[in-house]
Design a protein around this nucleic acid. Structure first.
Lengths: 220, 220
DNA sequence: CGGCAAAACGGACTACAGTCCGCTTCTATT
DNA sequence: AATAGAAGCGGACTGTAGTCCGTTTTGCCG
């Protein structure tokens, strides 16, 4: 390996900003084509019928390319899922209240729960096929947990917020909801009320009990 | 199809009790052989290396037999898992306190949490490979939920006990613990303390607040 | 513009889950 | 003990995820 003088003195155009040797144009094009093809096929045939070969062919690329880009079937599904997750994050950060900023924290918390409940059920198959045993992607999970910690802080909740956030999210994860709603046949409204009750207990048992008039599920 | 007089009048030896045309002896023998082989191979090579062909061969049967008995790879893994689940249930029903009967309900609740936490981590790969997106078998799940409802009742907790039970179990499910412990690197003790705190909040926010002196994680 | 190394491509190849169907073994009956 | 038919068996066969490696494309440099 030879080092030329140029290598030593050229900081290759500000490495501070945009620090990745990014993606070749054809690669980027193919990634888009694959994501779109996958989404289209899933919508059309149902996720269980969608094979990697089919996605590759629909996107007009070879099979190897699919795996290089997305690692595995699970990786591809996770990537498709990330689209909606990103939209959801945008709604939380800058969407209309009560999910977005502007509403009082307790209202936002309730909206958070309802919204998670809905999206978990809506994307159940995608989540299941995205691996990680039904959990969402790490990034998505972290974001939600962070937001939740923020809301709990706003509500003056004391304790290990990291873990309380998990306790609030866990019952809203897809596999558990699937079990309750699809197998045990529970009503979605009841599940939501139960979650709101849980939230109330977690928030209300704090030194500063803030939520006065609860939403649909008011606590005794 | 011909019906002989005998068919009409012989209630074939009390169908009330033992109402199943059960399993042929060779079939039963094969089931055992398969379960043992699977367990042995998993222990020896790690679960990801164990193929259905290998299990079949190790048990000395054909591949078709494996699938007839256990439906699928997930089914086989679930069956292996059920062994330990059954032991756990026995410990809850008739084992020594505080997990078993004899201790006050709050102690039993804490023991329940710790025990679940441990078994979830211990059997993480098995649970993951047993499908249902990381949830345990329906029977096991129902049993735990029932026991939890019972304990909550004993503690005088008011509310939708079905859902509160789920809220208490969800953070102890394998995929979530995996995320926390293996990926985020959280300390197991801290996770347990967090769960105890959660339990305290759920129990304590009831009209009748019973748990006076909490265990390792005492609430403010 | 021509050359070059790195990155990307694609399709043949492998490994494993799950199916199928003709053959064997068991059990109940007489 | 003989027999009939149900239950079980097993291994060849199929479909799909994932790998490998020789070929092509791309971006850069002189």
């Amino acid at each position: 390996m030879t080092i030329t003088p140029g290598d030593l003195f050229t900081p290759r155009a500000l490495p501070l900003l945009d620090e990745r040797p990014p993606e070749r144009r054809d690669a980027a094009r193919n990634r888009m084509a694959l994501l779109e093809a996958a989404q289209r096929l899933i919508e059309h045939y149902g996720i269980d019928k969608v094979t990697m070969d089919a996605v590759a062919e629909a996107a007009g690329v070879g099979k190897g390319t699919v795996f290089r880009r997305f690692e595995s079937r699970e990786g591809l599904m996770a990537a498709v899922l990330d689209h909606s997750e990103t939209e959801w994050q945008a709604a939380v950060i800058s969407g209309p209240p009560p999910l977005g900023p502007g509403a009082p924290p307790w209202e936002r918390l309730l909206a958070f729960g309802r919204s998670r409940l809905e999206t978990s059920l809506e994307h159940a198959d995608l989540i299941r096929n995205a691996g990680r045993a039904g959990t969402r992607s790490f990034a998505a999970y972290s974001f939600a947990a962070m937001h939740l910690r923020y809301l709990l802080t706003q509500l003056g909740v004391a304790g290990d917020l990291q873990l309380l956030a998990v306790a609030l999210m866990a019952p809203l994860e897809a596999p558990i909801l699937d079990q309750q709603v699809r197998i045990e046949g529970l009503d979605v409204g009841r599940v939501y009320d139960g979650w709101a009750d849980l939230a109330g207990r977690i928030v209300g048992a704090s030194p500063y009990p803030p939520p006065a008039g609860g939403a649909s599920a008011d606590r005794t």
